[in-house]
């Protein structure tokens, strides 16, 4: 019962990722593209946790934490570049 629910939820998340990838390629400004990649990566975090519970290999959940942290760092890089012109190096 629970296994079928997890599989259906994974399929719906993958449809959302496909729609967001098209928007990340097409988006008119840079801000749109970074925002779409942001949402794609956070949804990938949920996909990782659900797939590792479904495949009964629960030690793979440690991958999800650095993914969330580095995507925050990418946001800050783009924000500093757009506002000040250089990253202060």
């Amino acid at each position: 019962m629970i296994a079928e629910i997890i599989l259906a939820v994974i399929i719906i998340y993958i449809i959302s990722i496909i729609l967001l990838v098209i928007k990340a390629i097409k988006g008119p400004t840079i801000g749109d593209q970074v925002l779409a990649i942001d949402v794609i990566t956070y949804i990938t975090v949920v996909l990782f946790v659900l797939t590792s519970i479904y495949m009964k290999a629960a030690l793979l959940i440690v991958i999800a934490i650095p993914l969330a942290l580095w995507i925050y760092a990418l946001d800050i890089y783009i924000a500093k570049y757009l506002e000040e012109g250089d990253l202060g190096a």
Binding site: V21, A24, I25, I30, Q33, I37, L74
Partner: peptide, 10 residues
């Protein structure tokens, strides 16, 4: 650079 980050996420 942003397209390259998208490729790494995939």
């Amino acid at each position: 650079v942003i397209y390259s980050a998208l490729q790494s996420a995939l």
